[in-house]
């Protein structure tokens, strides 16, 4: 069985050039989702009426539904908006929107369990020395929550990067889209997708290593 390595390499390079697209989606989604996820977790754990129930339904819905299905729904919303000429923006914004939503739901759960692991006395102690509740959260509770949630947060980031492989369904021209286009031209789909596999393999592997070093660093820092 012959493998067209020249073609594989050319797709690899072309797809690699689109890596920033996937990164952009992942990074913006994270920047949106981390603070909102934290906020949602605090709202849920404090049992704020209506809001916490609504958030629970939202989290449960997003976590139970295949991401590709959510993406398709957004795609058709986009299409109708485009047709009506209401707004016409780059599809990447739709991708960022839906990945942010998914990530908020996931991080809400992550932060919720991290919050539960911080003793209630931490906030009480902060208030006892005269901090406001907000100050107590910002200066005492949230730094600890981030510390506890770090490993899960890191793995959730690599998952997000992998999930961006679905952005092609929103007509975003990313790594996956290049493989589809190039594969379609030459009918050498196998090589095209092998090239994409290679990219993801390298990217996710490197990310995992970086996170591991980062975790070790923060851990040793915390121990000091």
């Amino acid at each position: 069985m012959n493998l067209d390595t020249d073609f594989l390499w050319s797709v690899f390079l072309k797809a690699l050039a689109k890596l920033p697209v996937n990164f952009e989606i992942a990074i913006v989604a994270l920047v949106v989702a981390i603070p909102l996820g934290l906020l949602a977790a605090i709202v849920c754990n404090n049992k704020v009426p209506v809001a916490s129930q609504a958030l629970k339904v939202f989290v449960s819905f997003i976590r139970s539904t295949p991401p590709i299905l959510l993406i398709l729904i957004i795609y058709y919303v986009k299409k109708s908006l485009d047709m009506q000429g209401v707004i016409k923006i780059d599809p990447i914004w739709y991708a960022i929107f839906i990945f942010s939503l998914i990530e908020i739901a996931l991080l809400t759960e992550v932060f919720r369990s991290a919050l539960l692991s911080i003793p209630a006395t931490q906030l009480e102690a902060a208030e006892s020395i005269g901090m406001t509740k907000l100050q107590g959260y910002r200066r005492i509770v949230i730094p600890q929550v981030l510390g506890v949630a770090l490993p899960v947060l890191c793995s959730s980031i690599t998952d997000l990067v992998k999930m961006t492989s679905l952005a092609f369904a929103l007509t975003v021209v990313d790594i996956m889209a290049i493989a589809k286009i190039e594969g379609g031209f030459s009918l050498s789909f196998m090589e095209a997708y092998l090239a994409v596999s290679l990219i993801y393999l390298i990217v996710v592997f490197v990310l995992e290593r970086i996170f591991k070093i980062f975790e070790r660093f923060t851990k040793s820092y915390a121990d000091k």
Binding site: M1, N2, F189, M190
Partner: peptide, 24 residues
């Protein structure tokens, strides 16, 4: 390797690789 691959990518690789492999 399995941890690093998105499932849609592996699905395509399997889908295009397997028939080719078994044919050739």
């Amino acid at each position: 390797i399995m941890r690093c691959l998105p499932s849609v990518v592996l699905l395509f690789v399997v889908y295009f690789f397997l028939p080719k492999f078994s044919r050739e």
